[in-house]
Design a protein around this nucleic acid. Sequence first.
DNA 1: CTAATATAATTGATGTATCAAATATTGATG
DNA 2: CATCAATATTTGATACATCAATTATATTAG
Lengths: 142, 142
Amino acid sequence: MTNSCSKEAVILYKLHFLNKEISSKFEGCTGVSQSRLELLHHLYQVDEVSQKALQQVMNIDNAAITRHLKQLEAKEMIVRRKKPSDNRITLVSLTDEGRQKISSYQEEKQRFVTSILKGFDEKELDVLLDILNRIKNNIKEV
Amino acid sequence: MTNSCSKEAVILYKLHFLNKEISSKFEGCTGVSQSRLELLHHLYQVDEVSQKALQQVMNIDNAAITRHLKQLEAKEMIVRRKKPSDNRITLVSLTDEGRQKISSYQEEKQRFVTSILKGFDEKELDVLLDILNRIKNNIKEV
DNA sequence: CTAATATAATTGATGTATCAAATATTGATG
DNA sequence: CATCAATATTTGATACATCAATTATATTAG
């Protein structure tokens, strides 16, 4: 892959590779997947949300939300109830146990991310953030 | 996700998000997944390889290789045969049609990656490459 | 030579994502 | 009010990855 490819192609390849590695290690270190923790993080910041709202903020498929929540419900980390004023809508909220558990996940995550970005100073982090934002904007136009 | 998080955590999140977007658009633009094209690219550069060797260079699970190849074989893009001197080993090679098709995939990929990295000059690409390499090295030690 | 071990590939179970179709409920219109 | 359209969620089919167990073959030690 490294030879006979444009520099851009190598970057794309490395991004892909990196992400696979990160996802795998993330789960190993924190005990939860990135997506799952992101979902929990959103719930952490509110009292109650509809699945629809969750789905939109997470930019993930409806079906995936349903399935995540089903599992989290089974583990008693969240509760769901129908919105009284509109029975189409399901409202989701964390249980107390859920809320507690997230704190420790977040700590693990912070430890993880610090080690991944070890050796980067503030200025470099900003450069990287800027790069990621620019790529994100480029993607939107594809 | 953007609030109440360390800069590092935001970067991790954005990397994750970016990759999801890229994967999705990549497939839409090129008609093939990143992994699949990477596999084909490796095959493109050699005459014949064992599945084992493919698996190692791609850093992907054995089972995933088997299943990719099964599909590619069904589409007549590759052929497989047992290595005569060791029947445990399966050797894989592209068909002529496979070889042709890859060329057009690669063109699409180049178009795609160029648009994703639009606005980045040579020096910035090097900076990004360097960053990705450093992160990769950090991950190895986690 | 035969039993134990190692290697390569495959298969089955599982996790997480997608899309498309089905279901339930609400709202709006003739 | 009856029907039709819109909205939220769920389910089923598919894709692609993992791990663990299985199969087939080769190698090695006794």
